[in-house]
Structure formats: C-alpha cells, structure tokens
Design a protein around this nucleic acid. Structure first.
Length: 330
DNA sequence: CACAGCATCCGCCATC
DNA sequence: TAGATGGCGGATGCTG
C-alpha cells in the first residue's frame, strides 16, 4: 500500500547562524521515517544558494537557491536563529519565504523560525508557538499573531509552529504521524532514541508515549503500567482494570498509540530494566523479575527486539556506579 | 535450542 | 445512520 504515493517534498530553508539542531533534527526524523524507502524527499535551499554557517559553526552547502525553486512543495520548514532580529531584517530571506509559502501544502517553523515566517505576514491572525523565552518578543514584534505560550506545538490551518529544546524533532515526528500514521512515527521516534541512547533522567520513550495519550481512559491504563512495570499487565488484566472488553482495549492501543498492548508493556519493561541496569548492581535475573519479565531469557529476547542489544551489553556500556575515569589512551 | 502450549492480535460481524 | 463497543475464531508469535 506504500510506495505508490509520490515522495513528499520537504524544503528546509537555510540561512546564516541558524540553530543547527533546528535543521538537523527534522531532517534526521524524515530520513529515519523513510526507512530506506522514498516517503520524503529532502531539499535544502538558501538565499542565492550560497553555503551557510550555522550558529555552531557548521558549514553547509545547500542543494539549491531559494530563488530557483518552482512548483509545488509538500512542507516548507523555516528554522530559527536565536538573534531573530537579523532574520527578520533579512528582506531577501523573508521575501523568498513569502514567495514559496503559497506553493506549500504545509508551512512549518522551528523555535525562532517563527520570526522570519511571521515577517512575511502569513501568520497574521494565526495561533503560533515559539520558544517560551521568545514568546513575548514575538507577540510584541508581530501584534497580529496569537502567541500561545504554553504549547510546544501549534497547528493552525496549514501553518505549524513549534517550540522547545527538541522542537524540531517533535515537530517532524508530528508531521510524519500526520502523513503516515502513528506506527511509522513511533518507529522513527524509537529509532532516534535508540540511536541517541541517552542514559539517566527519565527515558524519552515513556515521556513521548504519555504525551500522546489523549484518551483519558488510555492514559490511566498507560500510567498503571509505567507506575509498576512488574505488575500483571496481561491484556485481560488491563482490560478488567479499565472496565472495557479485551477487544476494545486492543483497538484503543492501535488507534491511540499505534502499537499493540504487548508491545507497549514490553517497551515499558525494557525501559525500566535499563534504569536498573544503569544505576544498580542487581543481577540480570533480579532485574528481569523486578520489571515483570518471567525470566532472564525473556528479558534478553525483549532487549534484542527493542534495543538490538543484550542486557549484559547494555549494562557494560551504560553502568554508572563505581565508574572509573576512563583512560583516553592505552 | 526446539517446540508444545498459550497469549495476543485483528478481521469480521452483532449489538446498542 | 454512524460510531462506539463486544464477542468469536484463526493466524501469528511468544514463553518456558
């Protein structure tokens, strides 16, 4: 059923001193979402086609000049630079965004990208989001916008604006979900998270999942699982607690989360296990039991499915207690 | 590490 | 009528 759709053209606008992550985050998400296929075609373009230097000093050679782009665009993305005044004053940049936006099915901005986008006048009367530190400045500079200070992501018609540290990634994931459904978006998110494999803090996995549970009933079900991964979370048990049939619960998981009940429970348990493996000294068997796996072997299989590594390898890599300073050379 | 038994998932249809 | 929910059964895949 896939592959018959022509690729969705994503145009990333580049200009000097943009926030690198605003650019690379969405591009990485779309690339991962492609999964080797051709769902998205990515194109970077700058004023005059000149190479740009991001805020971090990364030099990027764009694919094209904004001025040369013609025809329809799927999604036009405008990243931001923290000193937004310069972007707003860049009349050439603003003019090109204004020219291209009507040809785009969707127009999106990341973080401070809302400023040059607003300078085109296209956002007037629309609800928009931006980084909370910048929301006042945005509202004062462009009084016709309805600045939403609380949301990290706002969709108003075909205009999408986003804020927050990982805004670009969240934004792109939301667009992927819109285009290809929750399953594809979820897979991409998981891929990126595994790729970034961060230790400590609360895992991004559950944060994302909980955020996405709109249905109150569903949220309660998910909370029960994450609060006590080791409990009985068979489908029958969850359905009974939620007061719905097993069939309906199954359906809710698919429509609300884009994954099955068992997948969710497994992910949650793997995630809980990674916490214990990182900071505790319990044996693998104890960890397995504690987070609800029937045996060490079951946990091993789940780790392989979810993370592609064995629990022992995970611990070897991320264990932090009794950590000796690493030698840089031998 | 193979495999029997079991849980899960989901299409299909009935019901409200 | 459309939409939400429940039950059934077979294919699939997981567990021990």
């Amino acid at each position: 059923m896939e592959g018959h759709r022509p690729p969705h053209l994503v145009v990333m606008v580049l200009y000097d001193r943009v926030q690198t992550l605003d650019v690379s985050g969405p591009l990485d998400v779309f690339t991962v979402a492609n999964d080797g296929g051709a769902r998205y075609r990515l194109l970077t373009a700058s004023p005059g086609g000149r190479p740009v230097r991001t805020l971090a000093g990364l030099r990027v050679a764009p694919d094209a000049a904004l001025e040369d782009l013609t025809g329809r665009i799927g999604t036009l993305i405008v990243p931001g630079r923290p000193d937004w005044q310069a972007a707003v004053r860049d009349t050439r940049l603003v003019a090109q965004i204004a020219r291209l936006a009507p040809h785009a099915r969707r127009v999106a901005s990341v973080c401070a990208g809302a400023f040059p986008l607003a300078a085109t006048g296209l956002l007037d009367g629309h609800r928009v989001a931006t980084h909370w530190k910048l929301s006042r400045a945005l509202a004062e500079t462009f009084p016709c916008l309805k600045v939403d200070r609380d949301s990290i992501y706002v969709r108003d018609g075909r205009v999408v604006t986003s804020a927050g540290v990982t805004a670009g990634i969240d934004l792109a994931l939301a667009l992927v979900e819109e285009d290809w459904g929750p399953e594809v978006a979820r897979a991409a998110a998981r891929h990126l998270i595994v790729f970034m494999a961060r230790s400590g803090e609360q895992s991004q996995l559950s944060v994302r999942l909980n955020l996405d549970a709109r249905e109150p009933l569903m949220r309660r079900v998910l909370d029960t699982v994450t609060a006590d991964p080791g409990g009985d979370h068979s489908r029958a048990a969850m359905a009974a607690r939620a007061g719905v049939s097993v069939r309906h619960l199954t359906r809710l998981f698919r429509t609300e989360l884009g994954m099955t009940a068992a997948q969710f429970v497994e992910q949650t348990r793997v995630e809980a296990a990674t916490e214990l493996l990182q900071s505790g000294d319990d044996t693998l068997c104890v960890v397995a039991r504690r987070v609800g796996f029937g045996s060490e072997e079951t946990m091993r299989r789940a780790f392989r499915r979810e993370l592609g590594v064995a629990p022992s390898a995970y611990r070897a890599r991320f264990h932090t207690r009794h950590h000796r300073p690493e030698r840089l050379s031998s």
